[in-house]
């Protein structure tokens, strides 16, 4: 490997690493945004008003059928030019909005599968005990609907982490951006991009293991048999 230089590798490593905080921070911010916004979709789709439900379903479908990169470009470059409501957003904020909203539609689907997995009898029991709507959701339905979806939610965290480099295209200075500018400055891309790949591997793989552990812990806390049954139902 005559093109490979450990000197360049060691030189580039700390520089690329400077972007890691941004990459992780953006991932977590986007994820948090998507987790919250996923509930907004579910809520809007359950409001007892059919036209609204259709519109929301259609918007979700639209967002999911459009590439996240196009959405990022739209929010960052096109949005400021929209008359009236348009405004200029920082690259980071644009990325949070773009990727967060994009993934919230998937997260919303995950929530829905979890909610559908809750037995009809649970809703009836909540009604028979005269639960008000809010408490019914927070005490009865969601505590049963969400734990079985944790592995799926975890997978989306890892997927998002791997999509976050898209934000470098609008100038968010994450590890990919750092590697690219190092590459263009010294005309050597092999080492910095290898570092990017290694960093992603080093972070994704342990996360997958961690999520697996969390899943088992949740199942233990919860009724095991029921949790397994409904998580199967949720995934299929």
């Amino acid at each position: 490997m005559e093109n490979w230089s450990w000197d360049v590798f060691l030189d580039a490593f700390p520089i690329v690493l400077q972007g890691l905080g941004i990459t992780i921070g953006l991932t977590l911010t986007c994820y948090l945004f998507a987790l919250i916004f996923g509930f907004v979709w579910i809520f809007l789709r359950r409001v007892p008003f059919k036209p609204l439900n259709w519109i929301v379903t259609w918007i979700m479908e639209f967002i999911r059928s459009t590439p996240p990169l196009v959405q990022l470009f739209f929010i960052y470059y096109a949005w400021p030019m929209v008359p009236g409501i348009g405004m200029t957003l920082s690259p980071f904020t644009s990325a949070v909005l773009g990727l967060g909203i994009h993934f919230s539609t998937y997260i919303g689907e995950v929530y829905r599968s979890g909610i559908d997995g809750v037995d009809k009898g649970q809703w009836e029991a909540a009604r028979a005990l005269n639960y008000p709507t809010g408490k019914k959701w927070t005490k009865i339905i969601l505590p049963q609907a969400i734990p079985p979806t944790i592995p799926m939610l975890g997978n989306y965290l890892i997927i998002m982490f791997k999509e976050v480099p898209l934000a470098s295209t609008i100038g968010v200075v994450g590890i990919l951006h750092m590697a690219n500018s190092y590459g263009s400055q010294y005309w050597t891309y092999l080492e910095p991009l290898t570092i990017v790949a290694i960093l992603f591997l080093v972070l994704s793989y342990p996360s997958a293991i961690l999520i697996n552990k969390l899943e088992r812990k949740m199942n233990r806390r919860f009724d095991k048999k029921e949790a397994l049954k409904s998580s199967e139902g949720a995934i299929t």
Partner: peptide, 27 residues
Amino acid sequence: IGMVFQHFNLFPHMTILENCMTAPIHV
């Protein structure tokens, strides 16, 4: 009005004491 169901419909994520306590507290 109260009801007992054919298939029990207990809350699987709560102990049996919590199953009984939850409605008096929250309702």
